[in-house]
Design a protein around this nucleic acid. Sequence first.
DNA 1: TACTTATATATAAGAAAATTATATATTAAT
DNA 2: ATTAATATATAATTTTCTTATATATAAGTA
Lengths: 109, 109
Amino acid sequence: MKTRKEFLSGTLSTIILGLLKENDKMYGYEICQVTKQRTNNEIVLTMGAIYPSLYKLEKEGYIKSSKEIVNGRSRKYYSLNPTTINDIDNRIASLLNFSQNITNLLKIS
Amino acid sequence: MKTRKEFLSGTLSTIILGLLKENDKMYGYEICQVTKQRTNNEIVLTMGAIYPSLYKLEKEGYIKSSKEIVNGRSRKYYSLNPTTINDIDNRIASLLNFSQNITNLLKIS
DNA sequence: TACTTATATATAAGAAAATTATATATTAAT
DNA sequence: ATTAATATATAATTTTCTTATATATAAGTA
């Protein structure tokens, strides 16, 4: 069951932060791949969404980036900014909580 | 834990359909109240969001409305259009599935 | 060799959907 | 008389994503 596009709205940046919390450092393309694999191809993040979202998170101070050359290709790795970890934890917890609320609200019908 | 506003983006119309599936007929204000109560004040739908969303769902043929006067006040009741029940069931199932994917994706970290 | 697929980032134009603010009106409670 | 609760409506703005496009390298295949 492919996820309807609109559901992803607003959750993208928190998904990114959640994966970065778990993975020390990741690059944009990798975040898309991991998300796809871990959700059985149901949540598909697009390039046009992920990169602007990463820039915004960096501009807001939640993450920081560093460029590396790997196998002759340039990669831009991102990692969490530890000074904002409380904010980040709250965002992730809030999204998990929202998901639980949605389930409670709709599974009854 | 109050839900961050952005998470609601894109899910509102499916929440409405989910509640209408369960409740035969409801009016906009009631949908807001029920959602608030059932989520311990965490999911708060706003008036500015709910009414335009109801109009759109009606225009798209998913729901139909009828006005009633109750206690001297006008109420606009909405109910599901049975001809679109398959679409509606798919939307609700897809949102529940999305919530499960989010949980699987983020609860690990 | 040439072509395609996969990897990898970037950004502009447009659309969709919500937020915020405002307006109106009645009933109930203080 | 005033405030809070009930109830609907809509305009302006902002945010955020989709879609499309552009660039570039590596690996696999025909």
